[in-house]
Amino acid sequence: MNIFRLTGDLSHLAAIIILLLKIWKTRSCAGISGKSQILFALVFTTRYLDLLTSFISFYNTIMKLIYIGCAYATVYLIYMKFKATYDGNHDSFRLEFLVVPVGGLACLVNHDFSFLEILWTFSIYLESVAILPQLFMISKTGEAETITTHYLFFLGLYRALYLFNWIWRFYFEGFFDMIAIVAGVVQTILYCDFFYLYVTKVLKGKKLSLPA
């Protein structure tokens, strides 16, 4: 554990909590891509199956349980409790375009051709692109509520901090996991355009809206 990883995990947690609170407090999931949230629930489920096979630390177990629980709670709020506010027409990204290629890639490029390892690899690849339906939705509607942009910022920040974590671990522990690193770089790059808009607009008090 190093400072980058800890702050990365906390940033990830902050993103998840911000989204849940936003939906709960406003009693609305307008502007939120339910499809991205389904993908994140799938990511956590396939990655954390090792909860059943190995114990790493108390911290590790608790965080995994929180992530999984929050992911399913978010999906529940969007598709069940506040279904009436869900903007399905603008959430039109086709999930199979992500899940199928990612599944194929996980079977081809992995550390070990075993069931749990392939699911772990699948989750890593899928996480790197899981935000695309949300970004696609924002590009379709041309705007995002400020609280939604905070959510996206913390979600992007988490992966960026993990990049520093991997640099740290490479230098001080000689550890590197090429699959996680490449997927993490891809994931962070996907947020770059958004980071730019966040800094130039949202942090200056303006709403995030894209030019027509």
């Binding site: 990883r5 995990d9 990830h12 990655r47 090792d50 190995s54 790493i56 630390s57 590790n60 965080m63 995994k64 992530y67 550390h111 070990d112 390892e117 772990w120 993990y162 974590n165 550890f175 590197f176 996991d177 090429m178 699959i179 996680a180």
Partner: peptide, 10 residues
Amino acid sequence: MRVDEVHDEL
């Protein structure tokens, strides 16, 4: 790169 170890990151 490690195969037989656990994935300790979240």
